[in-house]
Amino acid sequence: MKTTPKQDQRIATMTFASVYPHYVTKVEKKGRTKEELHEVIEWLTCFGSKKLGELINQKVTFETFFKEANLNSNAHLIKGVICGYRIEEIETPLTKQVRYLDKLVDELAKGRKMEKILRQ
């Protein structure tokens, strides 16, 4: 499945701050913690909790969020289907990066072991 330019633009202009509370709710509803969520986000982006808080307060777009991120060298190991798209087949780099994050949050919420989520 290919993403459309309209979908890619919508993702790029969406703020991380608008999605973050949904990530927190999703993982906490399934018995995981906000700290575990931050660990997953830090693994992917190298953003510590302080930097993450700053980005949320600044209401940065996903485009800015991932421009500032230092993506983990093992991020390419994140595979599978999320939101109806096979991550490996997404061609737009930003959309792929956002789906990496979505997939990690989904795995955390589903109770997957942290070492598996972090591709260790």
Rank of each mutant, 00 (worst) to 15 (best):
G111Q: 12
V105Y: 06
M114Y: 05
K113C: 00
I117C: 07
I82T: 13
G84V: 12
L94P: 12
Y100G: 00
A109R: 03
L104V: 02
K96W: 10
T95M: 04
G84I: 13
G84L: 03
Y100S: 03
I82L: 12
R119T: 01
K96Y: 14
R86C: 10
E89P: 12
R86F: 03
A109Y: 08
E91F: 08
D102S: 12
L118S: 11
A109H: 06
L104G: 04
I78F: 02
L104C: 14
K110V: 05
M114Q: 10
M114T: 09
E91K: 15
V81M: 02
V98H: 01
K103M: 09
C83N: 12
Y85A: 08
C83M: 10
D106A: 13
K79N: 13
K113Y: 04
R99V: 11
E115H: 10
R112Q: 09
R119K: 15
D106H: 13
L101C: 08
V98L: 00
I82V: 15
E107I: 02
L108V: 02
K79G: 11
K103V: 07
Y85T: 11
I82P: 09
K79V: 04
R99Q: 14
Q97H: 08
I90G: 11
I78Q: 04
E89Q: 14
M114G: 04
K113D: 09
I90N: 11
P93S: 03
V105N: 00
L77N: 00
I117G: 00
R99W: 02
C83Q: 14
V105M: 08
C83V: 08
M114A: 10
D106Q: 15
T95G: 03
L108T: 00
G84D: 02
V105L: 02
E91M: 15
V81N: 04
K103P: 06
R112C: 04
E115F: 07
I90W: 02
E115W: 05
K103C: 05
D102Q: 13
L108F: 07
K110T: 15
E91A: 15
R99S: 04
L101M: 15
K103R: 15
G84K: 13
L101F: 02
E115M: 05
T92R: 14
L104N: 06
T92N: 15
E88N: 15
I87F: 09
E89W: 03
L118W: 07
G111E: 06
G111P: 08
R99I: 03
E91N: 10
I87K: 06
R119D: 04
T95R: 02
L77F: 11
L101Y: 00
L77Y: 02
D106K: 11
I82N: 09
K79I: 03
T92Q: 15
Q97D: 04
G84S: 13
I87D: 00
L77C: 09
M114S: 05
K79W: 06
C83A: 15
I87A: 03
E115P: 03
V98Y: 00
L118R: 00
R86G: 12
L94Q: 06
L118M: 12
I117L: 04
L94H: 09
T95D: 05
R86W: 12
I90E: 03
